[in-house]
């Protein structure tokens, strides 16, 4: 797996960001926005689904945010961010024309390029759909190379369903299945209520020949991986995306240490046979 940034120029300091201009800001949810960014230097930006960038807001700080757009597009990038604190809120307050610093792309991608011929199961919780979206685009762009494709998506309430229009479009396709559940029904919701693990129990994939890409809160990923395991999927075919505090993304700051791994370089995507033993240890 190539974990090195493909467009890092030799000799350039990896701690110095490139400037990107915000082209468009889309409000997704009450606290979540997607921004489209274009590089000021006009050079292409290449990444693989599952990789992330360090986004810098002038004078405020820098945070790791996954790339949520299409990896076939190299003229710009998209990021979908939920406001949870200082930097994410400052990022979401920016307007078109404002400039952000971008370092990346970093990290090990989802293994979409290595799983031809297999069924692909996406399991997402909340804004965890954003880091999965580039992988979904990739699989749909190479649809003929895969078996069944299923998305299991859980959100807190119907109002928290991310990329709602796109999810509806995917749902309307004949070559994939999309199941959505909410923790709590509100308004006119007539769909499923319950946790995403419930959906996994419904199956819809060949357990001997499927790969699962799982992204969401850590507990949700553990339950999802267990449910997939119970359905007979081998742990090495289940992949999760880990979150740890990150101050550098290049192995310098130590903040993301997780056992023998730097989550920034060895992850954030880990196969569950590697992740499970670490997840089971208290406060590792």
């Amino acid at each position: 797996m190539n974990v090195l940034a493909p467009n890092r120029t030799v000799g350039q300091d990896p701690m110095v960001p490139r400037s990107f201009v915000i082209e468009r800001v889309r409000k997704e949810l009450s606290d979540t926005y997607t921004m489209d960014l274009v590089p000021r230097d006009g050079l292409p930006f290449r990444f693989e689904p599952g990789q992330f960038n360090m986004l810098y807001v002038f004078g405020v700080g820098e945070v790791p945010i996954s790339i949520s757009g299409d990896s076939k597009v190299t003229a710009g990038i998209s990021h979908t961010t939920r406001s949870v604190g200082k930097v994410s809120a400052a990022l979401n307050a920016l307007q078109p024309g404002d400039v952000v610093g971008v370092r990346g792309p970093y990290g090990a991608p989802w293994p979409v390029a290595d799983v031809h011929g297999m069924d692909v199961v996406f399991v997402a919780g909340g804004v965890g759909l954003a880091p999965l979206r580039p992988a979904i685009y990739w699989v749909l762009a190479h649809r003929a190379e895969f078996g069944n494709v299923a998305i299991f998506y859980g959100a807190r309430t119907p109002e928290d369903i991310l990329f709602r229009r796109e999810v509806q479009q995917w749902r309307g396709r004949f070559d994939m299945t999309v199941h959505v559940t909410v923790d709590r029904a509100t308004g006119a919701w007539s769909g499923k209520v319950g946790v995403v693990t419930q959906l996994i129990k419904g199956g819809g994939f060949d357990r001997h020949n499927a790969v699962a890409l799982v992204c969401g809160p850590e507990v949700m990923m553990r339950y999802a991986a267990e449910a997939l395991g119970e359905r007979g999927m081998p742990k090495q075919n289940i992949h999760v995306s880990m979150e740890r505090n990150m101050k550098c993304a290049v192995g310098f700051c130590g903040h993301c240490q997780w056992g023998a791994n730097f989550v920034c370089k060895d992850g954030p995507v880990f196969s569950y046979d590697r992740a499970e033993p670490l997840l089971s240890i208290w406060e590792l």
């Binding site: 974990v3 090195l4 890092r8 000799g11 350039q12 300091d13 990896p14 701690m15 290049v250 192995g251 310098f252 370089k265």
Partner: peptide
Amino acid sequence: KVFIDSGFTDAG
């Protein structure tokens, strides 16, 4: 090894 030889180089 940490700052020069592990994939990324800290220029300073």
